[in-house]
Simulated assay, not measured.
Amino acid sequence: MSRDEIIDITNTFLIEEFEVEYEVIQPDADLKTSLDLDSLDYVDLVVLIESNFGIKLESKDFTDIRTFNDLYDLIGGKLHAIA
Rank of each mutant, 00 (worst) to 15 (best):
S2P: 00
D4H: 13
E5V: 11
E5K: 11
I7K: 09
D8W: 05
D8M: 08
I9Q: 09
I9H: 06
T10S: 14
T10Y: 09
N11Q: 15
N11D: 15
T12H: 14
T12D: 15
F13V: 12
F13S: 13
F13P: 15
L14M: 11
L14W: 02
I15R: 05
I15L: 03
E16T: 15
E17P: 15
E17F: 04
E17N: 15
E19P: 01
V20T: 14
Y22P: 11
V24N: 11
Q26M: 13
D28Y: 05
D28C: 04
A29H: 13
D30M: 08
L31K: 02
L31C: 05
K32H: 11
K32A: 05
K32T: 15
T33L: 06
T33R: 08
T33D: 13
D36G: 04
D38H: 13
D38N: 11
D38M: 14
S39V: 02
L40C: 11
L40E: 12
D41F: 10
Y42N: 01
Y42E: 03
Y42H: 06
Y42C: 02
Y42S: 03
V43H: 00
D44M: 01
L45P: 15
L45A: 09
L45C: 10
V46D: 02
L48S: 10
L48M: 06
I49H: 07
E50Q: 06
E50S: 04
S51Q: 07
N52Q: 10
K56E: 03
L57S: 02
E58Y: 01
K60T: 07
K60L: 04
T63I: 12
D64W: 13
I65D: 08
I65P: 06
I65K: 14
R66N: 05
T67W: 11
T67S: 14
T67A: 11
N69F: 12
N69T: 14
Y72W: 08
Y72R: 04
D73I: 13
I75K: 01
I75Q: 01
G77L: 04
G77M: 03
K78T: 05
K78G: 06
L79W: 05
H80F: 02
I82H: 00
I82Y: 01
I82P: 00
A83H: 09
A83T: 05
A83S: 06
A83W: 10
